[in-house]
Design a protein around this nucleic acid. Structure first.
Lengths: 105, 105
DNA sequence: TAATTTTATCGTATATTTACGATGAACGAT
DNA sequence: ATCGTTCATCGTAAATATACGATAAAATTA
């Protein structure tokens, strides 16, 4: 393909697809669930709980951060990741709207 | 990467990620919305409404069909695509469960 | 039967994603 | 200042996704 055609769609559809993309790997689903359960949310804890190398986990965190579903806070040499509840709610609302728009409920 | 590690997660997380993947391109979001609005749902109508070649639209339909969000019915030389309401509801429920699990609502 | 219509699939090119080891940057502790 | 810890980023390899033209398959029509 010469170039992507994603930009030829509406902003709404592009944003929605982008949120879905962030959720499109089981490791990222798992990370969101773990972040919700754990008090501590440093990267090392996540690496221990996932069958992936540290560099790979870091990449998945970057993708979740890119769409705003999580955020990291510096805590000394560690980074504490947390869910961004506001953006997560926005994502949930957008998906709800899609599903109600296509009349499944 | 030697091989994918997706299979090292739970079935639940794999399925959820797979549904999200099907929604992760604006063309497929658009197709779902169009299929809900149109009476006629043959592929040619979709091609007319999207900035993509027929072969590409066919590929996107295949991906949506793969996860069961749509289904096609043969109607002479045409194929009539429709939303699979049952599976769409199942997808919505799974995503709702994820979002409520991670406490955003 | 031959031509037309409709859609899937093949082949292919390019882009993106996934994964990991190695390295580097930032911080606390010795 | 040096060392260990923690994490991001770089470089790289392989897999997957995206896009399209060409072609094949299946049904209707002439």
């Amino acid at each position: 393909m010469a170039f992507s055609k994603k930009e030829e769609f509406t902003q709404e559809d592009i944003w929605l697809a982008d949120v879905a993309k962030a959720l499109s790997h089981p490791a990222r689903i798992r990370i969101l669930k773990i972040l919700n359960d754990l008090d501590s949310c440093m990267v090392g804890s996540l690496v221990d709980k996932l069958p992936l190398a540290q560099a790979t986990v870091s990449q998945h965190l970057k993708e979740l951060k890119r769409v705003g579903l999580i955020e990291g806070e510096i805590d000394g040499p560690k980074i504490c990741y947390c869910i961004n509840a506001k953006n997560l709610l926005r994502a949930k609302t957008a998906l709800d709207k899609l599903f109600s728009k296509i009349g499944c409920c």
